[in-house]
Design a protein around this nucleic acid. Structure first.
Length: 517
RNA sequence: GCCGACGUAGCUCAAUGGUAGAGUACUUGACUGUGGAUCAAGUUGUUAUGGGUUCAAAUCCCAUCGUCGGUUCCA
């Protein structure tokens, strides 16, 4: 017989109070920075029409690999390119169960929002390239990807925290994105030097590879994919992989791209030449001297110059933002500057091995944001904080120790059902003063149980009111925080009790508690 | 998808073909209205699942499932 096993979908998780708190800390402090730069908060649905996200139907050739899709139970009209309903030979509107997709990032929905706003004008042919409106928004929320392989720290449901500027091709926006990322990292508690914003320009790589005879998008993509791994596998292995392939430590054979030896050496030289430069100006100088000049590299260098001078003007030096000509960022859709925030911190895993956290934010410029939807180029640039990655980082490196053990509520102990109304009055009065207060409602009402509960929730204070106190017109207050401090030193139970516990007149209770919190 | 390692109590892990154990957690008591520490007692298992070899399997073999590490792919 089939039964029900309580369980979660792989790659989805429950977040306890500690992680939840870290997560919202990140969101609040970073959002504050985004607003500080003028971005407005938007939110969009978790589910979208598959075609609007640039994902097409499972039966078509471009199978929506990697996303969660399903058919809408409701039939709706099919549209033509001019926005009118598609009709059959009998002039009936063609109806379909459209495919729906859980959003896999926040950028695709942004494109939909932007295109939807422009749609009416677009139909009237009033939308022109280079005249599209400026739109700046930030957004956070869960996104969903159907990953086959789930590395630790990689999930199928995870949160992103994006800001994007649509409708500007000025690279000052890219420079600004670096400022924002840097400010955001510091706002949520990272110290200068705990992180580095790394910047590169896709045009530079494109121009360089073009110079080496790698002149098609397809070739470029495969080469970039290998270059992207250099941090992970080292320059030597990367070279092997560009050439004849290599043997992995595990014995797996990794096929190479079969590039020419001289080409490979030039790529390796290029990457090594810049990996040691610390000054942005030095990198630019070296790039100019390299003599690889074509349309792409020229534009790329010029843009980096602009970014450098913008950052320099407000004293964003190399302790925050560096140029890193080897930075690729996997995705193919970037067209200009790309950036990434790397955590320089390490932590020890459960086996005591030193581990790096790596990249925690990424972004860049992409000119084809709404190309699918409006058919025109709209320049956009933006970046995304990987909230869950960052939460884990803060957790692992213990950057926020106070967050890992949040203070619990004041606990009102329940001795007697008859006194419940009075317990509620006390709780009410405390809450009105802004003190988090909980009345104990558990089954097991032994005092021991209730105090153990308070201890487990890290309550600072317990309030006890029973028959004895009622007769005297007092309330017993137990300072759990003080008690915890003393517990390591004091063995004598009575003395311990004497110090951490006292009686107070009922009418003085609230002020007393407030002063203790 | 491919290569490798691992899977024993809620958790962390022992037991090298011969009776399945410890720490921790949990429950109860010492303390009948008092957290921690201490002490005492108690509960916890189809050794991932299914098959095979053997007088005898947690242990050896095969398959399946799961976890981890590496690799491939990734809008």
């Amino acid at each position: 017989m089939r039964g029900i096993l309580p369980r979660k979908i792989k790659g989805f998780r429950d977040l306890g109070p500690e992680l939840t708190r870290v997560k919202w800390d990140i969101i609040h402090s970073a959002s504050q920075i985004y607003r500080n730069y003028g971005f407005e908060h938007w939110d969009t649905p978790v589910i979208e029409y598959a075609d609007c996200l640039g994902k097409y139907l499972p039966e078509s050739d471009s199978v929506a690999e990697g996303v969660y899709s399903f058919q809408n139970p409701e039939k709706e009209p099919v549209y033509q390119t001019d926005g009118k309903e598609l009709r059959d030979e009998n002039d009936h509107v063609v109806m379909e169960n459209h495919f729906l997709t859980l959003r896999y990032d926040l950028t695709a929905p942004l494109a939909r929002v932007y295109a939807e706003k422009l749609w009416a004008q677009f139909l009237r042919n009033q939308v022109q390239e280079n005249k599209t409106p400026l739109f700046r928004r930030y957004q956070y929320g869960p996104v969903y990807r159907f990953e086959h392989k789930l590395d630790p720290g990689r999930f199928r449901e995870f949160w992103q925290l994006d800001f994007d500027t649509v409708g500007s091709d000025d690279v000052s926006v890219d420079a600004e994105a670096c400022m924002i990322l840097s400010d955001a990292m510091e706002a949520l508690g990272l110290k200068r030097g705990d992180y580095l914003v790394k910047v590169n320009n896709r045009k530079l790589l494109k121009g360089f590879l073009y110079h080496l005879g790698i002149d098609t998008d397809e070739k470029e993509q495969t080469v970039l994919r290998v270059i992207d791994k250099v941090d992970k596998i080292g320059i030597q292995s990367m070279g092997e992989e560009l050439g004849e392939g290599r043997m992995d430590v595990s014995g797996a054979r990794i096929p190479g791209l079969g590039l020419d030896k001289t080409v490979i050496h030039q790529i390796m030289d290029f990457l090594q030449k810049f990996s040691d430069s610390e000054k942005r100006a030095h990198v630019l100088e070296a790039l100019e001297k390299s003599g690889i000049m074509n349309q792409y590299t020229q534009e790329g260098i010029q843009e980096l110059h602009r970014i450098d001078s913008t950052l320099k003007a407000i004293d964003f030096l190399e302790d925050r933002v560096i140029f890193s000509p080897s930075l690729v960022r996997g995705m193919g859709y970037y067209t200009g500057p790309v950036f990434e925030v790397e955590s320089t911190q390490t932590f020890k895993d459960e086996k005591g091995r030193e581990r790096r956290v790596g990249s925690i934010c990424g972004g860049g410029r992409y000119d084809n944001l709404v190309k699918n939807l409006l058919g025109i180029k709209v320049p956009a640039t933006g970046a995304s904080i990987g909230v869950d990655r960052l939460a884990e980082l803060l957790f692992l490196t213990n950057r926020l120790p106070s967050v890992t053990q949040p203070t619990g509520p004041v606990l009102v102990i329940v001795f007697d059902d008859e006194l419940m109304p009075e317990y509620q009055v006390i709780a009410r009065e405390l809450r009105n003063k802004g003190v988090n207060t909980e009345v104990f409602y558990g089954f097991q009402r032994g005092l021991k149980k209730q105090l153990a509960y308070a201890d487990q929730k890290n309550c600072p204070v317990a309030i006890m009111l029973g028959e004895d106190e009622l007769k005297k017109g007092v309330v017993t207050v137990r300072d759990l925080r003080l008690g915890k401090e003393m517990s390591s030193e004091i063995a004598n139970k009575d003395e311990w009790k004497k110090n951490a516990q006292f009686e107070v007149q009922r009418e003085l209770l609230i002020d007393k508690i407030v002063s203790m919190i």
